[in-house]
């Protein structure tokens, strides 16, 4: 015969200890995050002013304290936007193929394999590839577009993997409900499956954007470098915020180092802002809001 048991003291103690360990692990994980944020904010606020956001480094002398990152901000925004325009449609369509049409066939298995391989490609290699192919072999000049190509290569596997995961989470029941209404497969995917997975896909895309927005190495070899404003991503060298930080931080003057900190702060703010926008879109589209 079994009896109703009370929670023993040893279990209570174990519970407390494990709970403590979990909190400790959490604190350990948060320490670097907070300290990085704190460093960037405290050092970056000094130069975070209107001039920094609206001026380039054109004609700024080595010891001048003013100057700004407008050219780099524009460059980063354009490069990341172009990279997203390339990689999101391709990545999403690949994920749709893998989940809805692949059926674990040979093609889908080899695509999966190559996506995994791409995930492991170091960012320098993506930059080198675009440099060798687009600039040396095809003979185009350095441009924001070339940088976007390199960033797109880095974004693609993240987009595919996260979208794939989200699409697989959509219950088969929903697809069947749609088929049973006589809706063709492609309309089912567009009107039922994608909207259901929408929030998750947006989050995945944002993660991919955040990942590439801070890449320096591939930009060095593709967008090259400039101190002046170039609004046209298809012609001539551009700048990017990571490049700006890299360049300024390497200069000997304190004024330049200050600009580097502010550049880093701006980059973090841009990624956070993009995240916020994505969350707003997801919230606005979510069914729970009950329009």
């Amino acid at each position: 015969m079994t009896t109703i048991q009370h929670i023993s003291t040893s279990r209570r103690i174990k519970d407390r200890v494990v709970q403590g360990l979990v909190y400790l692990a959490f604190a350990l994980a948060v320490v670097p995050l907070v300290s990085v944020l704190w460093l960037v904010i405290s050092n970056g606020l000094a130069r975070f002013d209107m001039e920094f956001l609206t001026h380039s480094m054109n004609g700024i002398g080595a010891r001048d304290a003013n100057g700004g990152a407008y050219h780099a901000i524009i460059g980063t925004l354009e490069q990341v936007l172009l990279a997203s325009l390339i990689s999101v449609p391709i990545g999403l369509l690949t994920a749709i193929y893998l989940v809805e049409y692949g059926n674990g066939g040979r093609l889908s298995r080899s695509i999966s394999f190559f996506v995994d391989v791409m995930t492991g490609v170091p960012s320098v290699v993506a930059g080198l590839f675009v440099f060798a192919f687009w600039i040396l072999f095809l003979g185009f000049q350095f441009s924001g577009w070339a940088g976007a190509l390199a960033l797109a290569i880095l974004m693609m596997p993240t987009v595919v993997r996260s979208a794939e995961e989200m699409l697989r989470l959509v219950p088969t029941d929903l697809r069947e409900a749609s088929y049973a209404l006589g809706v063709p497969k492609w309309r089912t995917i567009v009107k039922v499956v994608l909207p259901t997975a929408f929030t998750g896909i947006v989050t995945g895309v944002m993660l991919a954007v955040a990942r590439v927005a801070g890449e320096t190495a591939p930009l060095l070899m593709t967008v090259f470098f400039t101190n002046s404003i170039n609004n046209d991503p298809f012609n001539g060298p551009q700048m990017g915020l990571p490049l700006f930080v890299f360049d300024q931080a390497a200069r000997p003057n304190d004024t330049a180092v200050d600009r580097a900190w502010t550049g880093a702060l701006t980059l973090i703010l841009i990624v956070m802002l993009l995240n916020l926008v994505a969350r707003l879109i997801a919230w606005w589209r979510s069914p729970a809001r009950g329009r």
């Binding site: 219950p171 029941d173 929903l174 069947e176 409900a177 749609s178 049973a180 209404l181 006589g182 809706v183 309309r187 089912t188 009107k191 039922v192 909207p195 259901t196 929408f198 589209r285 069914p287 009950g290 329009r291």
Partner: peptide
């Protein structure tokens, strides 16, 4: 030939109205 499943499966992204309208709208 319409079908009703064992487990209720309304479309989660759609309102009550849109769920009923789904078959016609999608087709």
């Amino acid at each position: 030939i319409g079908m009703v499943f064992q487990r209720p499966n309304p479309f989660p992204t759609m309102s009550i109205y849109e769920n009923v309208a789904a078959g016609l709208r999608l087709n």
